[in-house]
Design a protein around this nucleic acid. Sequence first.
DNA 1: TTTTAATAGGAGTATATACACCTATATATT
DNA 2: AATATATAGGTGTATATACTCCTATTAAAA
Lengths: 145, 145
Amino acid sequence: MEKCKEIGQTCACYKVRKAARAVTKIYEEVLRPIGLRATQFSLLMATRVMGPVTVVKLAQVMVMDRTTLTRNLQLLETRGLITIKTGEDRREREVTLTTSGMEVLTKALPLWEEAQNRVKKGLGEERLHNLLDDLSEMISLARKK
Amino acid sequence: MEKCKEIGQTCACYKVRKAARAVTKIYEEVLRPIGLRATQFSLLMATRVMGPVTVVKLAQVMVMDRTTLTRNLQLLETRGLITIKTGEDRREREVTLTTSGMEVLTKALPLWEEAQNRVKKGLGEERLHNLLDDLSEMISLARKK
DNA sequence: TTTTAATAGGAGTATATACACCTATATATT
DNA sequence: AATATATAGGTGTATATACTCCTATTAAAA
């Protein structure tokens, strides 16, 4: 049980989750004025790029459980930032960004940039780039099985 | 709005949260047989090393909101894995690992090692080490303000 | 063509997370 | 000592997350 101390420094899960809480705080602080959570901002961005897109496809890209995505999308739909309607294949549901959603994103972008710059300056551009690459690797690693 | 695509690759918040979901899945998969979530495992570990420890102190170390910690601790207390009792300073509440909690940790450790090894092999020991260091840097960066 | 498989998605439930607002206790100020 | 302030902690509420089990629809097999 003497390992416990090391694990606090070496456990990938612990460290990544802790970092997620920490970095989320930075971004949500700046996004609060427009009432967007970190996940919501990411979802709107993804929808902007991929939409119209099905729930399953979006969940794959976000590495998010399909049912988690459903709940998250419902909130955005209620606020009129996206639309969700049945696709040609009537099993599928297509998610699309609305004009209102686009407007919110336009307001969000400079705020996002504030947070991103703070992280960039804090870590250094080089190091941040490296970090993001390594995280991508970790993500695809987890996808494999 | 053409920036949207890049942001998917460069947003630190998005990437770290996504990685957290991905890596959590790996660890929770192996921990499921003993009924521990990733956060619960980390909390037990932290309590093992730091306990008896106050809620505020534990929250600082975990970079977790105090109230979040309260809810998480309640679950562990209900299961008899920790005890929470009023300290000398009667505002404080001291968290301590129980014998039962220690036993669960003993069972959890080899399972945790499975997951950790999978990540270590996937990324390479060197790269993982680097990644964890960079995440530590990001965490302390977020702590500063 | 009927039956069976696979796929897309939702609802129930439980945990994780944090903000706003509250109480209790200890410390500092006067 | 009485009051004010700071600190520790909890509750209400809302979002985030994912597992299990369910239905609907499409595609495949017989």
